[in-house]
Design a protein around this nucleic acid. Structure first.
Lengths: 341, 341
DNA sequence: ACTATTTGAGCAATCGATTGCATATTTATA
DNA sequence: TATAAATATGCAATCGATTGCTCAAATAGT
């Protein structure tokens, strides 16, 4: 077996034509006759020719790779978005490099660096919770490399972005809680005021206002929003003796923690306290009772993000108008907010 | 701002030396004097030189990319393994391309193809459930490209692999169920007889045997092991009126489904029926009661897999002995198997 | 029939880094 | 001091595909 793989030169030699012609034929260049193209294709198949993307990338400056940077792939939301991106990208013959920042700013910077070194044609990213300086993203923009942000965005950058309407999702959820009779709705949010948490808080506040329910700062719990944090927040509220009849958490994980604590305190859900989360993580449908939450339309978000990205790519560095797409979230009503009468 | 980025030629020009020297200096080649190296490094910094990995890959044939193929990144186990792999890879200045087969054989083949086209230096993979033909992996081996399989393996390939001791994990779990008093233990498994399910079934059977509990085929439920499948399996057993006092499922998702059905039938866990899963997915600790399961040591598995991979890479195509590493799993005992007396 | 135009294909440079071989300079050895 | 050995660097080919430019042949236009 010949070790070296077939190149366009091998094809050219066999057909007594030049490599240029082969290259053009393979790229369906109109300057090449149909007949020659057919011959080249056939010979390529016969020699089991596999294009060397590295060589092509070097010469053309296009790697056909997209770098996708997410806080963690291990979350239904992010992995679904990635799936959506992949769907579109693969159709267009692009490959996706997934890179995780693990919510670590330093790693985020390194990963961006690494992706650029890998000569990706562009980057799609969701910003880590702890990132407050955006120079590394600005650098990408400065180089004219296509960049699209999704979900975790910042308004400190002039960049295309895709988000869901976090405000609306939170508003709808809060409204729903009010409609099933809640008047003392606790809200779990993050001290990190990244866009998504700010918007959700705002939606919560506006819904209260619209239904003439007073906003009580005592009902706001700030934390890192993991399961354990949700437990602590819930314990806090209970221990302080604060009256409450619902929890609306900006994170499914935190609401899960709250539910555990309520159970330990023999406070029944939804009879005594109603619960709602955000994110529609699969486990929210597993629990007893299943938890009301907000679906973030992850797959559409992935697809829209990819489409936005490829439009940007088509501009080829020419400054176009940055797109901001806002998707409608969907309130998924489950047993945890069932009206108890 | 100069658009074109600095190359080794730019550095060379500034220092009045040749690109070869610069290249060697940057690669810390011993044939270059310390002094020159220092100068080159300084100038590289000054010009903000970023090596072009594409060019380097083309010439050297090494892309410093590892392709990682998993059924889905959206599972704690797989994403943790990937994390372990990344840890090691990044230390060695390698980047990881994550690629998902979504348990689809066709996509698995395409992804392998795509990874090879991206000229990865090697591949780390976990085989999709439905894959029965392994030609695409054999092709990788035939090309002398390093390949390591983890968790979902096959003995039809002569390849390095890393697994946990599924047999032991299942044996320990079954033994534990017996020790807390169970005598009629149902087992959920997959009709796809990939290694992990086969081994777990074997562990279950052997534990029964060792404790003189008869094996009853009526207690074996085969399915695709998702949550919904677990529900169906549980319904089957209940509807057939088969006596049982425990379920040991080869999948956490399926056991979750079983738990839901039991709850709906007002069968209490763990008092009437004890439950155990496999995989230690995070949600197993969220549920009420939390579910006993087997931890698969995902991060160590990732690290060991990566280490095995890099050993293979060092051999540079020379046939070495294939390594098979077996990690010890850990039984995580939770409330769902609490002894009720 | 003769020039103008279109079509098809070849030539050679190029992308940026690597590397085998040759050469120049310095140091060690006899 | 002449020669061998070691050290430091340069030269030029190379990896495989792409592409601007040139050129030849075929077709069209008058």
């Amino acid at each position: 077996m010949k070790k070296g793989k077939a190149t366009i030169h091998d094809i050219a030699e066999k057909l007594n034509i030049t490599a240029s012609t082969v290259s053009r034929a393979l790229n369906d260049n109109p300057r090449i006759s149909e007949n020659t193209k057919k011959l080249v294709l056939k010979m390529a198949k016969q020699l089991n020719y596999q294009p060397n993307h590295i060589a092509s990338a070097l010469r053309s400056g296009k790697s056909k790779l997209i770098g996708v940077l997410v806080p963690t792939a291990n979350r239904n939301f992010f992995s679904s978005v990635v799936r959506g991106i992949e769907d579109i990208a693969n159709e267009l013959d692009y490959k996706v490099i997934i890179s995780q920042s693990y919510e670590d700013s330093e790693k985020e910077i390194q990963n961006i660096e690494a992706l650029l070194n890998a000569r990706v044609d562009g980057i799609i990213a969701s910003i880590g919770k702890n990132t407050e300086n955006f120079d590394h993203f600005q650098k990408v923009l400065d180089k004219g490399i296509p960049l699209v942000l999704f979900d975790r965005i910042t308004n400190q950058l002039d960049v295309s972005q895709v988000v869901i309407d976090d405000y609306q999702g939170a508003y709808d959820t809060t409204k729903h809680l009010i409609e099933v009779g809640c008047k003392r709705i606790a809200h779990f949010t993050s001290p990190k005021k990244i866009n998504i948490y700010k918007e959700r808080l705002r939606g919560y506040e506006d819904a209260l206002k619209d239904f003439d329910i007073p906003f009580d700062p005592e009902l706001i719990e700030e934390s890192n929003m993991q399961l354990e944090d949700g437990r602590i927040s819930m314990e806090n509220i209970i221990n302080k003796g604060i009256e409450f009849d619902a929890v609306f958490s900006s994170s499914d994980y935190a609401v899960m923690g709250a539910m555990q604590v309520l159970r330990e305190h023999k406070i029944s859900v939804p009879e005594q306290v109603k619960l709602a989360g955000f994110g529609n993580e699969p486990f929210t449908s597993f629990t007893a009772p299943p938890i009301t939450t907000v679906d973030q339309k992850s797959i559409p978000m992935g697809r829209v993000t990819a489409e936005t990205f490829f439009e940007l790519l088509k501009l080829d560095g020419k400054k176009g108008n940055n797109q901001k797409t806002v998707l409608k979230p969907e309130l998924i009503i489950r047993e945890s907010t069932q009206k108890s009468n």
